[in-house]
């Protein structure tokens, strides 16, 4: 049986919580400690689709930068899905991630994209206004998440899986 498998890359500025989202999603763990990512870590998890099929998401957690260099573009090859990650407490990280999306679109052919705005548990300190997200939602699926509490994390990956299997 050939199973459905898709490569997904986490894209976003450093420190927004890409690694944390993947740990929450794959291992259901979270750590406060910040350990920067160098290179890439590849994880995978099967996700059930609404139509009872499953898809294996092969998730690439790559080092976060506000712009993609040749090295990171190299990691993107073969990906059909992108999980864009911004940090609600850093408005600049939202702009960075949208920038990354434009760059990624140059090397990928029409990838499936979901934007997550992370650190919802710190909503009292968010710099991103709800109206901004409402506006973005016209063009992209957006999910507010907290890798810390787990809120929205499953939903975000499920949404991406759904788009990838469509």
């Amino acid at each position: 049986m050939t199973e459905l498998a898709r490569k997904v890359c986490m894209l976003g500025d450093f420190g927004v919580g890409k690694t944390s989202l993947v740990s929450r999603f794959v291992r259901n763990t979270f750590s406060d400690k910040y350990l920067t990512t160098v290179g890439v870590k590849v994880d995978s998890k099967h996700v059930a689709l609404p139509d009872a099929r499953t898809v294996k998401l092969v998730v690439w957690d790559i080092a976060g930068k506000s712009a993609l260099d040749a090295l990171n573009l190299n990691y993107l090859r073969g990906a059909t899905g992108l999980m864009l990650v911004a940090d609600g407490t850093r408005e600049a990280s939202l702009r960075a991630t949208l920038n990354l999306l434009m760059q990624a679109r140059d090397v990928l052919d029409d990838p499936a994209v979901v934007l997550v705005v992370n650190k919802l548990d710190l909503v009292e300190r968010w710099q991103v206004a709800p109206a901004t997200i409402a506006e973005l939602r016209r063009t992209l699926p957006v999910v507010e998440t907290s890798a810390q509490s787990g809120d929205g994390v499953e939903a975000a990956f499920a949404e991406l899986a759904r788009k990838l299997a469509a």
Binding site: R6, K7, G39, L71, N74, R77
Partner: peptide
């Protein structure tokens, strides 16, 4: 399986190179 995941979506008939894979 791990390696297959790593090269998912890429042709095996071409040279590929991924530095720093955890």
């Amino acid at each position: 399986e791990r390696l297959q995941d790593l090269f998912l979506g890429l042709p095996t008939g071409q040279m590929q190179d991924f530095p720093f894979v955890e």
